[in-house]
Write a protein that binds this DNA or RNA. Sequence first.
DNA 1: GTATGTATAGCACGAACGTTCGTACGGTAC
DNA 2: GTACCGTACGAACGTTCGTGCTATACATAC
Lengths: 189, 189
Amino acid sequence: MPTVANTPSTRDAILVRAVDLASTEGLEGLTIGRLAGELGMSKSGLFAHFGSKQELQLATVDAATRRFVAEVIEPAQDAPEGAARLRRYCEGYVAHLERGSFPGGCFWAAAAAEFDDRPGPVRDAIRGGVEAWLAELAQQARVADLPDPDQVAFELWATGLAANAYRRLLRDDGAFERARRAIADRLDG
Amino acid sequence: MPTVANTPSTRDAILVRAVDLASTEGLEGLTIGRLAGELGMSKSGLFAHFGSKQELQLATVDAATRRFVAEVIEPAQDAPEGAARLRRYCEGYVAHLERGSFPGGCFWAAAAAEFDDRPGPVRDAIRGGVEAWLAELAQQARVADLPDPDQVAFELWATGLAANAYRRLLRDDGAFERARRAIADRLDG
DNA sequence: GTATGTATAGCACGAACGTTCGTACGGTAC
DNA sequence: GTACCGTACGAACGTTCGTGCTATACATAC
């Protein structure tokens, strides 16, 4: 066996659909039967790829992480560390909301609200992803010599949560402009 | 018929428990069987009070509104309109998170994330509650002569969402102090 | 050509879901 | 006294859930 690459095909296709579904319906509303139906396969066939619902949820969180990294984190890596990269992170985050990279808006906001009171591996995975994002924001704020980098990360994430909520619940597209202004005020003012 | 008061008893007791449950498990995770079990009554007996799950959810949102008004809105009414009342709203909101008025944290943050992509009367009710809160924040900002009152409301709500998420998902009690600082920066700075 | 292994499907299960039904008790109206 | 209404119960409905077990299709290896 070459062992070079992992399975290229079905499992990845399942996870693409699973992330989309979970971002709108939630990780619990993501049911195996529905996922299988939308992909034109049987429940048991899909189930065999993961072995349990929890494993499917964990794989979905993992796939969402990879998508978020590809859409928000990586494009900012060519900016120099510090203020410039922090700005790129913020703009990349708002832009990924605006273009609908996840059909249900911010995957992390939805997953966090759903699992914040349900202890277990899924919650731990979500928490890990959010903490990594916050740590990265704080790290760039630190390099940029901003006072209290953790407070900066808190307020930037707050802005993201509100932008997502305005867009999803209130259907207010002005949310993105409001978010950009709040970010600019925080980083420039 | 006296028509003075409405039913005093069972229905209200159901809704107290329903709001608590929904704030942790979500409005969908709030199941009739579980609610009945926790209250020591039968599913059908409880069901008869509402007629459908959706009516139970709507009544729960309504009860949560009343609790929020009693815990956050009303205590601020003796402050003069404008900057003073706005500050009281913010402090009241953070304090109600801190003291755990809803066992699952901010009811609206949880409900908004859960229903923001599910059209229907429940979503409309949640949206109405959030919009009323935002409108009240903006109104006090307007009386206080703050520039762009809607932007102020956006940023204050953002702070509340982040405080709730830090506390619930990250289990970080420092969230409240961070929120107070963000609010002070926004209203004083 | 046969064996092995992986991916998928078929089928059935126990549990939980929202909902409906028939019934029974306690008041209030007439 | 009799009819009615609100409230509550237990049982069952059909559906969907996650999860097993077994079988089939189809590669690749020997």
